[in-house]
Structures are given as structure tokens and as C-alpha cells.
Simulated assay, not measured.
Amino acid sequence: MNDTFLRACRGEKTDYTPIWMMRQAGRYLPEYQKVRGNVTFLELCKSPELCVEVTLQPIDLLNMDAAILFSDILILMEAMGAPLDFHEGKGPVFATTVRDQASLDKLIIPDPDEATGFVMETIKLLKKELKVPLIGFAGAPFTCATYLIEGGSSKVFWETKKLMFTQPELFHGLMEKITEATILYLQAQARAGAQALQLFDSWAGILAPCDYEEFAYPYVRKILASLKQYDVPLIYFANNGATLLEYSAESGADVVGLDWRINIKDAIARVGNKAVQGNIDPFALLLPEDKLKNRIQRLLDDAKDARGHIFNLGHGIHQFTPPAQAKLAVDLVHELSSK
């Protein structure tokens, strides 16, 4: 197996900088669109054989150094008893929101092997196929809570912050329940064979640092602490989180994920003895080859003092990105970092 990604996570010497991309198995690939054209998104997430097929696509087509399990962070919320649907152009929708004690009481902490057995089956099947490490993942509690409270995506997070500030006991109760479910879910993924685990905190950056410390951070730390027994690298990615880097570094993660809103050299100085993952703007993949090469070289140079560096985008690859540009980026990273 090519274990370059795992060695970079652990801060060990590598022959080149490994690369994978968030949302690398997804809509920008025609091969994915072909599979997706026959099923709904949720049906795809719950079909292990199809999940294996789309997880493998960017590995085979683009030569990525790690695979990430094809799933969605809200699959666990559905397993907790929140009816979930995905609408084209609108994204995830929860018909029933969680804004009072009665709706919180209806949420359960599911047995992950029973309620999300299709995820564990996907992991087991992938382990037989892959020649690179497999990353399992979950959404961080704050990010998942926003979807349950808002009923879907949001731009201002009015309902989330209103609940947080006016009913803090209820908010913490929701966070505790999501945290317990997430611990069991990620532990099950590790037992099934995931070789690294990433916690996605897509909306952490909407919080002031003091509010993050009170309402989100304790739950991130609890989850990551519960996973140490499995001896797999742990990655924490707080999107729009340049103001939260010191928290990320002390969260218990082995690797701090970075978006593109901070120079990676500055981020490395702030996180200290931690590996980092990131941090090129996903839209930079649209640059012509010479400029993309220069951008990648500069990022590699700025990351040279990191304990370990995994090249990645600062967020998910955009659905309209030409696959040839993604492949070019992978080839450039491999070429430039191996010199």
C-alpha cells in the first residue's frame, strides 16, 4: 500500500507531498454523474457497492494518495431520528427542526452498526480494493446541530444563534446527544477499517472565538479524545477557522485542516508541532498551467517547515471544475514536491 498520506499525518519523512481533495468523489466527475443519474443522493449513500465505485473513481482517474469514504455528514442525523431529504439546488432539508426539548427528546443515540451498517459495509469492501489509505469522517457536533436547528443550510444562522444564546441548556443538550452519537459512529468506522478519521466543522467559522470555546470546542475535544485508542490519524477541519487555529491545534487532532483564508506559513507557525492539511482555494484549479504550477510551488515552499503536510483544497472541489485541471494539480504536486 502507498502509505505516504499516513506518514505525512504522523509527521514522518515522505518522498513527496501526498494529495487528496475534499469532495474528490463527486459531481465534477462524469463517471460520478453517470452513477448518480440512476439513483437519488440518499440511495447512493446507502448502497455500499455504488459507494465503493464512486469512492474509487478519483483514485483510479486522478491518482490521489488517499480515498475518503463516500457519504454525507448528515447521514448520522437521519439515523438519530431526524427525517432527511436532499433537494436539487437546495441541498439538505430536515422537515422537522430541533428547537425545543420535545424535539430533542425524540432524537436517539443509534447503534452505528445497525442504523448505519451500510457505511461500515462500504468501508470493509473498500479495504479489499484500495491501494491507498481510506479516510472515514463525520460532521462536528456544532455543524450538524445547525442543520437540525435551521432545518437545512443557512446564511445567517439566526435560529442556531438564537437557541444558543437564549436557551443554552437546550443547545448544550443537543450538542451532547450529537457528540455521543458521533463518538460511536466514528469508533465503528475505525473498527470497520478506516485508517484515518476526519471531523468536518463546516460552520465553526461563524462563531466568535469565545462562543466557539463555550458552545463547540468541548465537544470536538471529547470526540477526538474518544478515538485515540484506535491509533489512527485524526484530522480536524474548521472551515473559515483562521481565528480558531490555536483551538484546532489543541483539540486532540493529529492534523489541522486549513482553508485558503490564511497563508499556510503563518498557520504552521501558529499550530506548532502539528501536521497540516490544505490550503489552496478550490477555484485556483481553474488557473492556466503555468500559474497553477507557480501557486502550487509557492504553497509547497511555504509549507516546508510543517511537521507534516498533506496537500488539499481549502474546501471541497467545485462541481464545475474540469477533471483535467484536478488531474493536473495532482501531477504537479507529485512532481514539484518530489524534487
Rank of each mutant, 00 (worst) to 15 (best):
F215Q: 03
N312Q: 13
N239T: 09
A303C: 07
P233I: 03
F237H: 05
I223F: 05
A225R: 15
D254V: 06
A306I: 07
L224G: 05
Q297V: 01
P282S: 09
A225I: 00
I280S: 01
L234Q: 03
I310V: 15
V255N: 12
A249C: 12
F200R: 02
K222V: 01
G272F: 02
F283R: 12
I235N: 02
N279P: 05
L234D: 00
A204S: 11
L285H: 14
A267W: 05
C210T: 13
G252M: 07
V255D: 10
L287P: 02
A242Y: 13
C210F: 14
P218L: 09
I223D: 02
I262V: 15
R261D: 14
R307I: 03
N240V: 04
N239W: 04
A306Y: 12
Y217G: 05
G241K: 08
D290F: 07
E289I: 02
A267N: 05
Y219Q: 02
P233L: 07
A253D: 08
N279Y: 07
V255I: 14
K293R: 15
A253V: 09
A275N: 04
A284M: 15
V255M: 14
N240I: 01
E213G: 02
Y212G: 00
N239Q: 13
G257P: 10
L300T: 07
F237Y: 14
Q297N: 13
L313C: 11
I262C: 10
F311D: 08
Y219D: 01
V271Y: 08
L286K: 11
G257T: 08
S226H: 11
W203R: 05
P282R: 09
D290M: 09
S226V: 08
F283I: 14
I235Y: 07
L244T: 05
A303P: 10
G257V: 09
L287V: 03
D211P: 00
K291V: 05
A303T: 04
V232G: 11
D281T: 01
S251Q: 10
A208T: 00
P233E: 02
D259I: 13
G205A: 07
Y212I: 02
R298Y: 09
